[in-house]
Every structure is written in structure tokens, then in C-alpha cells.
Design a protein around this nucleic acid. Structure first.
Lengths: 247, 247
DNA sequence: ATATAGATCTCGTCA
DNA sequence: TGACGAGGTCTATAT
């Protein structure tokens, strides 16, 4: 594609806040939170209506370079090509794309008011535990859930039949050392602020599984592990599989 | 675009491992590590040559739905549109895209052998400290850097003039509670495994700044904070700004 | 704005 | 392959 034509299309699309997508030959410089260089090669570039910019190579989930929303984007003619010069005020960073060749250009104002509905998060796990407290142990009595307390952000908080406090930390995947430390921090903070004996506050880590070293640390601190899976995993898919014709 | 034409183009592009980009009207179901639904709306869909699939709405850096590399992708005609049915064996997840309308389709085999060169990471910080140990304190003597030891992954390890061990944890950004806990874990592990007195191992947190609560925790544990900035921040940009004509 | 923690985190690296 | 930690993490939420 003629660079002049590309430039006009890009400028118009940016003006009207369309989302753009194009393949091009380019090299890239980034400066801000770090410094990065990417030598000449072919990439897919996406610019969204909120002025998010993504540069994708042909492998991997993540963009090789990007700028976050509200980036100022200028298009300049320079010797040998076009310079897309960008700057984000909030993050104080800069990305320059020197475009040598463009292979296509598409843009569109995307009409989309829908939001993703997601189930199976850590929050859903803590909901499930609140509604089914015996998952943790028989006489567990939850008092609150997902609360920013002065002890920290505790997933599920409650007490046992003997009046001891119980702090539950949920993880939706295998719990590691940092999860144990997180639990430890909440328990310690609670002991400290309430002037309790260490040992009078129970700590429970609820996750699908736990690493060996994390389990050692957990035991050292007198905490317990309970194997819990995030709710609804695969349920919906199984339903859909049975009714593909419903699409 | 005719859905039949789109289907042919997509299937051909997938066969020849091209990277694809198209705007479409669709609804989406995900099932696997979680469950997700996204009702009908217009999105940009990208499929890479490694069979990574990304669904982007017109806002934000992250895809609203995605599948990781090595996803199996099938294209089926169904009542009212086309179903892009995908499955990733490794992650045991499924993504179905029901496409009602397509507005464009582009694909290309991207020629790109270049890799991003990045400077200013935490690793660069620990390099800088090893080369300028007085940043930490006057008589700091680094022994190793970025080491996977049985004590954990310690950024910089060394000793002071009196033979005490010193563990340094680096953070590129504001250090929070978790950074203090990480340091605490390394120090405790070292004390335990070497049979040392607590207090004979110094802990230092090196970061641009530290949050108030993290600093309290740090002092409680007898550790020190040293303000260190990651190297080379903005240097390259300043250079570039002076020599834009060089492009 | 800053602080805190989750994420279908992703990605690299090492045992 | 699992474990562990960084990330230009990004994002949501609360203060």
C-alpha cells in the first residue's frame, strides 16, 4: 500500500476514534518504564478507539510492544517511511514506530456494549465457601467475605465452634509460598491488633492444591490446607456440547 | 463480507499458518480454567501463526477472550452464521465464537526474526548494585547476583565488613507488603538452613520507594530500605528526541 | 492519585 | 513437567 494512502487512512481513523488493524514492516523504539528496541520486521499493529496501541509479532499471547489507553498519536512523514510517534502522559512513556511498508489497513467503529460474564474466580470461590462453610471444616461459621478490614483483604473470615477466629485465604490455582505468606500476614495482623495469642487465630488456605515447600511452611506456622476447586469449572462447556445446534 | 467467502479465506489462512485479523459481529463462550460468556457485539479477532487466538473489544490493553498457542481451530457452518470452535489440549479449555457477520478479513505470513531488546529490568538493577555495591551501604560486598539457591531466588547476596550475610531484594517500582515478605522469607530461610542467629543476616529492600505500611513491616523485622532507581530510565528517549531526523 | 491483590494472568528459567 | 518469581505486567477496587 502507498504510504501516503496509508497515512491518510490512519489519520482519518484516529480522528473518528475507530479501531484500526494493519500489517506492516517496521522498527520500534520504546522508552519510559524501561527501554526497548525492536529491529525491522513484519508485525500486526492494532490501535483501539481509546488510543490503546498494540504491536503483535506472529507468536505468543502478549504484544511485543504496546501503549496503554489515552496515548497521544502523531503520524509524520520522514525519510524512508512514516513515523508513528506516540506518548502517554500518565505513564510518561514514548513509543516510536518507524513504518517502512504497509500491507493492508482496516478500521471500524466497533459497536459493542456487552461485558464479559466470568465465573470461577477467586471471588466465586469465597462465595461458595460462605454458602457451604463445611467445606473448610465442620463447625466453621463465616462472618464476612471479601472484605477490606484493617487486618488486610481477607477472603473469608469467621470463627469455629469454640470462638476462635478463622482466616481463610482462597487461591484458584495451586497455592505457593506467597499464598502462605499472605495468609500469615493476615493472621499476624489480627493477632497483633486484637492482642490475641498466636494460635488462637486459625489460618486456612483453600486451593485446588499446594506445592510441597508451601505445605511445609504452612505446617510450620500451624495453618491448614483444604483442597477446594473454583466453582462451575467445565459445567457450562458440558452443557454447550450437548446443545451445539442451539447456536 | 459473505460468510462463505470469509470461511474459505479463514480456512486457507489457518492451513498456511498465516496471521489473521478481522472485525466481526459475534458472541462467545469460554470454558476451561473458568467459565465466561460474552453476548453479541462487534470485535476484532486475531489468530496468529502459532494458533494463539485473541478477541479484542474497542477498549483496553487486554483481550476480552483468548486462547493460548497450539489451539486447535475448527470452522463450521451453523444455523445463522459460522462457528469457530477451538480447543487447547494443554490447558483443557474451549472457546466457541459464533460469528454472525464479518466486515473484513486480512491475513499474512509475517516475516520477523527480531526479538525485543529490553533494558531497565529488575535484573539490570541487580547488575547495577553488584557493580556499585556502595549503593546499598559503604562496606557491602556482593558475592552473587540473580541466583537460584536453595534459599530461593535472591537478587543480590553478599556480606558486610563484619562478616554478616546480606540479602538484597530489588523492586523496579514502589515496594509493597509482598516485597517485604519476600525479603523476610529469604532471610528466614537462610537463618534456618545455616543455623544462624536471627539478626546476623541483614535484609535490604532496594526500590525507588516504599509504601507506608510496607516500611512499618520492614522496620518491625529489622530490615533496611535503600532508595534505588532502575538504570537507564528515559536515557534512550532523550537521545532519540535529539535525533529524530536520524530515522 | 496511591495501595492492595487477582488474573482464563503470561513468560522465562531452573531443578 | 512443576515451581517460582518478574512483568514496560493489566485490571478492579477501596481509600
Amino acid at each position: 500500500m502507498e504510504l501516503k494512502v496509508f497515512s491518510e487512512k490512519l489519520v482519518n481513523a484516529l480522528k473518528s476514534n475507530q479501531t484500526c488493524s494493519f500489517f506492516c514492516l517496521c522498527k520500534i523504539n520504546y522508552s519510559g518504564r524501561a527501554e526497548a528496541e525492536l529491529d525491522e520486521g513484519e508485525r500486526l499493529i492494532v490501535i483501539k478507539s481509546d488510543n490503546t496501541l498494540l504491536v503483535h509479532q506472529d507468536l505468543g499471547s502478549n504484544p511485543v510492544n504496546y501503549m496503554k489507553a489515552d496515548t497521544k498519536i502523531d503520524v509524520l512523514f520522514v525519510k524512508g517511511g512514516i513515523l508513528i510517534q506516540t506518548h502517554n502522559q500518565k505513564y510518561k512513556d514514548y513509543l516510536d514506530i518507524f513504518v517502512k511498508d504497509v500491507f493492508n489497513f482496516d478500521s471500524r467503529k466497533l459497536e459493542d456494549g456487552k461485558k464479559l460474564v466470568l465465573v470461577g474466580t477467586e471471588k466465586d470461590m469465597s462465595d461458595m465457601i460462605r454458602d457451604n462453610p463445611s467445606i473448610i471444616f465442620d463447625d466453621f461459621r463465616p462472618l464476612s467475605r471479601e472484605e477490606h478490614t484493617r487486618y488486610g483483604f481477607i477472603d473469608v473470615f469467621g470463627h469455629d465452634g469454640e470462638g476462635n477466629f478463622v482466616v481463610v485465604e482462597c487461591k484458584r490455582y495451586v497455592a505457593g509460598l506467597s499464598a502462605v505468606q499472605q495468609l500469615r500476614r493476615y493472621v499476624e495482623k489480627m493477632v497483633e491488633l486484637r492482642g490475641l495469642d498466636i494460635g488462637s487465630v486459625k489460618g486456612v488456605l483453600a486451593a485446588p492444591s499446594i506445592t510441597a515447600s508451601a505445605e511445609v511452611m504452612l505446617k510450620d506456622w500451624g495453618f491448614d490446607f483444604v483442597s477446594v476447586n473454583p466453582p462451575r469449572r467445565l459445567e457450562k462447556f458440558n452443557k454447550n456440547q450437548k446443545s451445539l445446534g442451539d447456536y
